[in-house]
Design a protein around this nucleic acid. Structure first.
Lengths: 136, 136
DNA sequence: TTTATATATCAAAATAGTTTGATATGCATG
DNA sequence: CATGCATATCAAACTATTTTGATATATAAA
């Protein structure tokens, strides 16, 4: 951390043109990131990681329609049981879905409305990138 | 795909208790996922992947404050230049940030407001999970 | 209580993503 | 055009995630 500071100030001085202001800017940048709580950021990254897979996105989209058990989900995404279980465990551990035991079945559902908002938002972003195309 | 269908209908029949209805349900589940466009889902997963890393989240949070060049970002996140460049390329390729060349500097900024909405939404989700804690 | 079923977990192979020093590229200046 | 600097790209080591058959666990039915 400390070992790059000198070079950092040099770079910043060339960028800004004034050594004192550069020192100031370096301090400011460092203080902004210092304020960002590591644990919070890791927790947020964990949520994005859980959504960062096509099968898992499919599962979330399916669960918008209502609660489903593992055997239904494995049919829908067309993967083996162990794979389906694995993907569900990632979503569950990230807090995106909830499990309910029902006899020998495990039924899964979305844990909160924000998951749907997230899916809507990412669709919007994708559509904006492609120039406003439409899709299911 | 076809080779699991028979077993799928068996499972579904046990779940529902009626072979015809089971066949129907299997078809319905398959048709829901069939409607989900693979390319769209992959594109959306790509966006989530880009956000699924603590350093990249930090960068996005920094860029909420305005445009920054690579040398400023590497100071803020305290990583070597090559690492910083790599992370920026992931964000750029996913369409989350935009690059602007300015002499020998490359300046980066958020590409759209939806990125900020995404950051707000994930913070909400994380806070809900922890029982409403607060953070920077 | 034996058997079948649904799901979770394990373990090992396969695949994918990250880090970073070294090097290339491109701009600006002397 | 030689030099210095900012950034991008490369390549190899490293780390993490995913896949899936096999196996364990738990529930229900025979």
């Amino acid at each position: 951390m400390a070992c790059v500071t000198k070079e950092a100030i040099g770079r910043m001085t060339r960028l800004i043109g004034d050594a004192d202001k550069a020192q100031c800017k370096v301090n400011k940048l460092r203080s902004i990131t210092a304020k960002l709580n590591e644990k919070d950021i890791d927790a947020e990254a964990e949520i994005f990681k859980a959504m960062a897979d096509p099968y898992r996105l499919k599962i979330l989209m399916l669960l918008r329609e209502g609660e489903l058990c593992v055997c239904e989900i494995m049919i829908a995404i067309d993967r083996p049981q162990s794979t389906t279980s694995y993907q569900l465990s990632i979503l569950r551990d990230a807090g995106l879905i909830r499990e309910r035991k029902d006899g020998r079945w495990s039924r899964y559902r979305l844990s909160e409305g924000a998951v749907i908002e997230m899916l809507n938002l990412v669709k919007l972003m994708k559509d904006n990138q492609n120039g406003g195309g439409d899709s299911g």
